[in-house]
Amino acid sequence: MKHVISVMVENEFGVLSRIASLFSGRGFNIESLTVAETEDKSISSMTIVTHGDENIIEQITKQLNKLINVIKVVELTESVQMAREMVLLKFAVNSGPKRLELLRLIEVYQGRVLELGVRSLIVELTGERAKIEAALDVLAPFAIKDMSRTGMVALARDSQKN
């Protein structure tokens, strides 16, 4: 089972490696990890996507909480999370019917063309993981030259709205 964990940490030297070595040292999986400063510069926010059964996820959240630099750990279950991922794709396509077809598909996925060259195209896609996965499947037949994915960022929804 996939789980999304949001972690607030003190923005201190070495904190990322503490989290990473906790996962590797205890044999937990990290599928993706994103980190950035929050509006308070002394605090960073991390979104970790991991998988495991209930016991493992419980251990992960407890072990994260145990780290001195970790301020808050929230497991974001599917119903309460707002999650997005972004991917940048570079295609090698000349102008021609192939390119037109590609542009149409990109539109279907609400992608944005960031750079349009003679022989290449750079596109940005943002959305839920499932949408990104679906888009990548559909776009696979076009020669994807390069790709960069952010991994998931997530926030808890306002609980009132649930």
Binding site: F13, G14, S17, R18, S21, G25, I68
Partner: peptide
């Protein structure tokens, strides 16, 4: 040593 001992200390510090 901070890197080396991270998993075998409760916490560690480098004073900068």
């Amino acid at each position: 040593i901070v890197g080396i001992t991270r998993p075998c200390t409760k916490h560690n510090f480098l004073v900068k």
